[in-house]
């Protein structure tokens, strides 16, 4: 049984539809990403999962429970890190851990959790004096302190420097390896590609695509990128006629083509037929960035 089931969820604020019929399921033990541009409805969707918002239509189930009607049950199995949320400026790390531990019937040992998240040195530091990375580590600790089965992390690494971001990624993988399901909201492609088992790409309140990161990339029109410098110029019409070609660019004698495997096969045939040598030939898979832009129609 999936641990999170979202089906046909709609939510509008003052007549403006923010979430327009979103459905997905999250299996126990996976890192499920919700990826989308700003304002796509990602946060509203997870707020329905957390029980902070009431969907206008559709149903949400977390471990078989309705987050709004069975608030108590859901808060016991779901830990959350909220976007742009803070703590009392003068609360210390230890006080925050103890306070939130007391909120749950069967909490984790806060000392062990502090140790695991590298917060032991900071136990007597007040929240306002923590760095961005330390604050986020504390919020991960608070999300885990109730021994949840699911954690929802919303834009966890926004505002962190690259080093702190990578450290946080390692922590998220550790969390998943300990058997906790992770629902990760992000707008960083690299983060989604590195961490997620599956990704729902959300655009304008709808699920634009739902697949593994590799699946999303291969699904995109320009999944394979080929670059080379031909020994002699190739006729532009021949290049443009390649099958499944998504884009074609020539600059300073360098040719860049995007398309599928079929495009590449045809290109190689064209090179052989015209007796052209392709210098510095590189054939690479597109990144999730390319797939994302393609899926959300945000290409420049």
């Amino acid at each position: 049984m999936p641990i999170i089931e979202v089906s046909g969820v709609r939510k509008a604020y003052g007549g403006r539809t923010v979430v327009d019929g979103i459905s997905f399921t999250v299996e126990e033990g996976e890192i499920f990403g919700i990826l989308g541009p700003n304002g796509a409805g990602k946060t509203t969707t997870v707020e329905c999962v957390e029980g902070l918002r009431h969907p206008d239509a559709g149903t949400v189930k977390v471990a078989g429970l309705d987050p709004v009607r069975d608030r108590d049950g859901v808060t016991r199995v779901l830990g959350a890190q909220l976007q742009e949320s803070e703590l009392q400026p003068k609360i210390t790390v230890q006080e925050a851990l103890q306070l939130y531990a007391a909120c749950y019937p069967d909490p984790a040992d806060w000392r062990a959790l502090a140790e695991r998240l590298g917060l032991t040195e900071k136990l007597s530091t007040r929240f306002a004096k923590l760095s961005g990375g330390q604050k986020q580590r504390l919020f991960i600790a608070l999300a885990l302190i109730g021994n949840p089965r699911v954690v929802v992390l919303d834009e966890l690494t926004t505002g962190l420097d690259p080093r702190a971001r990578r450290e946080t990624w390692a922590l998220i993988e550790e969390v998943r390896d300990s058997g906790v399901t992770v629902l990760l909201v992000t707008h960083f492609m690299e983060e989604a590609q590195r961490l997620c088992d599956r990704i729902a790409v959300i655009d304008k309140g709808r699920v634009a695509a739902l697949d593994t990161p590799a699946g999303l990339v291969s699904r995109a029109a320009g999944a394979v990128v080929t670059t080379f410098t031909p020994s002699a110029p190739l006729p532009a019409a021949d290049l443009a006629a390649l099958p499944r070609l998504a884009s074609h660019e020539e600059r300073d004698g360098n040719v860049t083509l995007t398309g599928t495997d079929e495009t590449v096969t045809a290109l190689l045939a064209l090179l052989a037929r015209t007796g052209t040598t392709a210098h510095r030939l590189r054939i690479v898979e597109a990144t999730l960035d390319d797939a994302f832009l393609d899926l959300t129609g945000e290409a420049a």
């Binding site: 957390e50 902070l52 779901l78 830990g79 909220l82 949320s85 909120c103 749950y104 608070l142």
Partner: peptide
């Protein structure tokens, strides 16, 4: 809000 996603 943070408190309201706990059982308290």
């Amino acid at each position: 809000r943070r408190m309201s996603v706990t059982p308290v």
